[in-house]
């Protein structure tokens, strides 16, 4: 018995150690980037920096934040995230409400359901989608970043499953009082499902903030691209003139620390919402998937 306990305790120690190492490996790269972004030219170009800044300096951040192009891209990202999320969530709520109705009451639901789900199964592919956006006259418009991704069928399904869990009695009582579908949705379903809405909104916000490919193909004016696309272009082929810097600005600053600073600034908004995300997403993830 004593032996068993001992081996058990050894396992617990080893397990904690193992888990800690893996978890640290998950954030170590981010720490390295932060350290590089805060280090001096010499330390970064000769690859001396490990996990702690050497020759501490804020230079890279100063240069990055003073760059006009960077701020413009930041603004585009904010706009697409705010409007993209608002529109997407409104559509999700409306669609999920209708889809949560019973087949016998809402005939046509099955047709709609297949119509939605089929888009998850089959994709038109990059070229046709690109041509549609182009033909619709959305090139260089913020709408190109919002409308094609506005209907997220997966979110509609999650929301629908949540709505179906709301007791029928609530709705029936409201209907007897003469409430129509609009009133039921906005005065009963909406307040009850605020936590789910928060979860899906956060996911949608992160999605918009992180999207870069649409910005790259649909936007060909420098002042229209979102931050993720801006960062992508900078990281892929570094060109300081893109952020409006002169070669002389780089005397004390290495390309590498500037890049790292940009990466870190791009990550920061996600890190800021991360605590909120974490509070909700576990619930959100299991909301539709584990069903009894």
């Amino acid at each position: 018995m004593l032996k068993l306990k001992f081996s058990n305790r050894m396992f617990q120690y080893a397990n904690h150690l193992f888990l800690s190492i893996v978890a640290i490996l998950c954030i170590l790269p981010m720490i390295h980037v932060l350290a590089v972004s805060l280090s001096s030219n010499y330390a970064t170009t000769s690859f001396l920096v490990k996990l702690w800044p050497i020759g501490f300096t804020w230079d890279a951040y100063e240069k990055a934040l003073n760059s006009n192009n960077f701020l413009v891209a930041f603004k585009v990202s904010i706009l697409r995230t705010v409007f993209g999320t608002l529109i997407s969530m409104t559509l999700t709520m409306l669609a999920a409400y209708s889809m949560s109705k019973d087949n016998r009451y809402f005939r046509g639901r099955t047709v709609y359901a297949w119509f939605f789900v089929f888009t998850m199964l089959f994709h038109g592919g990059l070229i046709p989608t690109y041509l549609v956006v182009q033909k619709a006259g959305l090139m260089n418009s913020l709408w190109a970043l919002i409308l094609p991704v506005a209907v997220n069928v997966f979110n509609v399904v999650l929301m629908m499953n949540f709505f179906r869990g709301i007791p029928k009695e609530l709705e029936e009582a409201a209907a007897i009082d003469g409430a129509g579908h609009f009133r039921v949705l906005f005065t009963i379903f909406f307040p009850i499902s605020l936590p789910s809405i928060a979860t899906l909104s956060l996911f949608t916000m992160v999605f918009h903030w992180n999207s870069w490919f649409d910005g790259m193909i649909y936007m060909n004016q420098a002042n229209k691209i979102p931050l993720a696309t801006f960062l992508q272009a900078l990281i892929a082929g570094f060109d300081y003139t893109q952020i409006g810097l002169n070669p002389s600005d780089l005397e004390n600053l290495s390309e590498r620390s500037l890049k790292s600073a940009l990466i870190f600034i791009g990550t920061l908004p996600i890190l800021l919402v991360y605590p909120f995300l974490q509070k909700y997403f576990v619930k959100g993830m299991t909301l539709g998937s584990v069903k009894e």
Binding site: F115, T119, H123, G124, V132, A136, L147
Partner: peptide, 12 residues
């Protein structure tokens, strides 16, 4: 929206 951005590209 699904017609414009999903179904028409499918026909593409």
């Amino acid at each position: 929206l699904l017609i414009v951005f999903n179904y028409i590209p499918m026909a593409g």
